Each structure stands twice: as structure tokens, then as C-alpha cells.
Computed example of a mutant assay.
Amino acid sequence: MAPTRDNYPARVALYTQPTPTPPQKPPKLSMDSLHRTISDISAELRKEAEAASHELNHKPLPPISEVEDAKCECCGLSEECTPEYISRVRAKFSGKLICGLCSEAVKEEMEKNGGQIEEALSEHMSACAKFNRFGRTHPVLFQAQAMKELLKKGASSRAKSLSPRDLNKGAKKGGIARSSSCIPALTKDMIE
């Protein structure tokens, strides 16, 4: 069915929407109510500040601890500490005052020796005393001595080379056996 003039306006009315009304602006607040709100807030803040200062005036402040220079009995490092901290450290480490670095080293030493704090503390203190006596003045020699001790520890812990005599006695089998030293052969060639 084709649109005719008679039913045309009815169809157009179906597809058209009424125009929305523009949003209205909110009503303006009066300056009096704004001033009243600000003064209420400031009055509340003033009351809180007065109450806080009143509480502070009646509560005594804790005494301020003076810091003092404390010298580590192991390494000799000086650091600023409060007397309370010094007493806590002394109680923890058998009356010795040690710095934080040394306390960590002592804890590591305790893990090695099974939790004996006295042994760990004396071991660390002897290592620090040895370093302070020799290592600070001669660092290269101290490093060479440390390497020498490391090699000694390694040599004593690893298996000794097997000689043919040890194989006959029923020692470990499967290792490389050394029959003799090559030094005499080398010196023989040098002499000739």
C-alpha cells in the first residue's frame, strides 16, 4: 500500500520525537551559607588543635637519648649508637660491643659450628685481630697468606696421589698412580 496524503502526517508523527528540554542550571548558593560553612569548619579545627595542645601539655615527652660513638671490639669500626642499643648488643653477644657487619659474620660462624655463640665470637675476634695486626699494614702479603692457607686446607682435604706401594697395600683403586718423580730426569738432562 502506497502512502497517500491522508495517512502521510500520521506516519511522520510516528517517527518524530518530541524535542528534549535543555538541562536547567543548579540554583546558586548564597555567599552567606558558604561563609557559615567555612566558619563552622575552622571552629572545629580550632577546637581539635586546642584539645591536642592541651593533651601535649599534660603528657611528659619521653627523654631524648643522646647518641655516642661506640667502637666495635672486633674490627674497630666506630658508629653512633644510643645507650639502649649498646646495652642490647652487649646482652646479645656476651658483653662484647660489635658492629652490624661483625654481628652478621658471627651469626655465619655460629651456623658453621652448630650454634655456639662463644666459639663463633672468639673465632671472629681472632680473625679480626689478625687482620688488624697484619692485613691493614701489608694487604698484599695478607692476601698471599690467605691464599697459602686456602691451598693448605685444600691439600689436606683432597686425596693424596697414589704410589705403586699404596696399590699393593690395598688402598683406593681406580686413581692415577704415580710411579716416580720426573724431577731427577730433568735435572739429569740439565747437568749433561
Rank of each mutant, 00 (worst) to 15 (best):
Y15L: 09
T16M: 10
T16Y: 08
Q17M: 14
T19D: 13
T19S: 11
P22W: 01
P22E: 03
P23L: 06
P23K: 10
Q24V: 10
K25Y: 15
P26I: 04
P27R: 12
L29Y: 15
L29E: 00
S30D: 14
M31Q: 05
M31L: 13
D32Q: 07
S33K: 13
S33G: 08
L34C: 15
R36P: 12
T37R: 14
I38S: 15
S39W: 04
S39L: 04
S39I: 06
D40T: 03
I41M: 07
S42Y: 05
A43N: 13
E44P: 08
E44Y: 14
E44C: 15
E44K: 09
E44R: 12
L45P: 11
L45F: 15
R46Q: 14
R46H: 09
E48N: 08
E50T: 13
E50V: 11
A51H: 07
S53V: 01
S53M: 04
H54Q: 05
L56F: 10
H58V: 13
H58Q: 15
P62F: 09
I64F: 01
I64E: 04
I64N: 12
V67A: 01
V67P: 12
E68C: 08
E68Q: 04
D69S: 08
A70H: 14
A70Y: 03
A70V: 07
K71Q: 02
K71L: 11
E73V: 02
C74S: 08
C75H: 00
G76Q: 00
G76S: 11
L77V: 11
L77D: 12
S78C: 06
E79L: 09
E80C: 12
C81W: 06
C81M: 13
I86P: 04
R90V: 06
R90C: 11
A91C: 05
S94M: 10
S94H: 10
G95L: 07
G95R: 07
K96P: 09
L97K: 06
C99S: 12
G100D: 14
S103P: 12
V106M: 03
V106C: 02
K107W: 13
E108S: 14
E108C: 11
E109P: 01
K112H: 03
N113W: 00
G114A: 05
G115D: 00
G115N: 09
G115T: 03
Q116R: 11
Q116S: 09
I117K: 00
E119Q: 02
E119Y: 06
A120I: 04
A120M: 05
L121Q: 03
L121D: 04
L121R: 00
L121W: 02
E123K: 03
M125W: 04
A127E: 02
A127S: 09
A129I: 15
A129N: 13
R133C: 08
G135A: 02
G135F: 03
